[in-house]
């Protein structure tokens, strides 16, 4: 698994629960280091061990943890750079949804060895969408749910999300966009720079 993904999981735990909790996770996952390097690649099991350890340390189901990671990635000030990169996907939330199919290609453009899930959006009319998420590792759909929820806030859109489950590394998410201008979203200044 790419270090960027492991590093994001680590930052989520550190920034949300503090370094002591991260220390517990490191011990429980039996890591030989205490910090992920964003630009190195790790064995896939390492990510599984870390996610298991987080669920145990926090005493919460993994799906919930994954969803929180998705929300963290868009809403925490420390990862503002990622929010900005996602906002390049479209002017409106609906436009953004349609950019999700390009997500793996966009990621590869920046970091050529970064593999992200294959996402496919289907529009059914009346603000109703379905998104399938395919990846080597099950559960990424929950990250997407958290991410979409936070991004809808960011755009000021009102949506309802439902993770429909799935198997064989393929998960389905239902999205209902009730109002694209429900609230004033956060601004996205093209010329600004994330600190």
């Amino acid at each position: 698994m790419h270090g960027l993904i492991n590093r994001a999981i680590e930052r989520f735990v550190r920034d949300t629960y503090g370094r002591d909790t991260w220390g517990q996770v490191v011990r429980r996952a039996d890591l030989s280091f205490n910090e992920f390097e964003a630009m190195l690649t790790y064995e896939a099991e390492v990510t599984t061990q870390v996610l298991d350890a987080i669920a145990q340390v926090l005493g919460r189901p993994e799906a919930e943890v994954l969803e929180d990671i998705g929300t963290y990635l868009v809403s925490h000030p420390k990862v503002e750079a990622l929010r900005r990169l996602l906002r390049f996907g479209g002017r409106t939330f609906t436009e953004f949804l349609h950019s999700l199919d390009d997500l793996p290609a966009r990621a590869r453009l920046a970091v050529s060895d970064l593999d992200l899930p294959v996402l496919e959006l289907c529009e059914h009319g009346g603000g109703f969408f379905s998104l399938t998420c395919q990846w080597s590792r099950a559960g990424f759909g929950h990250v997407i749910v958290g991410l979409l929820r936070a991004l809808a806030d960011d755009y000021g859109a009102l949506i309802i999300l439902d993770h429909k489950g799935g198997g064989g590394g393929c998960e389905a998410i239902e999205i209902r966009v009730l109002n694209t201008e429900h609230a004033t979203g956060r601004s996205f200044d093209l010329g600004a720079r994330a600190e």
Binding site: L4, A38, M39, A81, F88, R106, L109, A110, V111, A194
Partner: peptide, 19 residues
Amino acid sequence: ELLYLVEAKTAAMDASRTL
């Protein structure tokens, strides 16, 4: 897309520089 690329590459370079 160009602006996206500039920001994405800058972020990736920063991560590489840290390493």
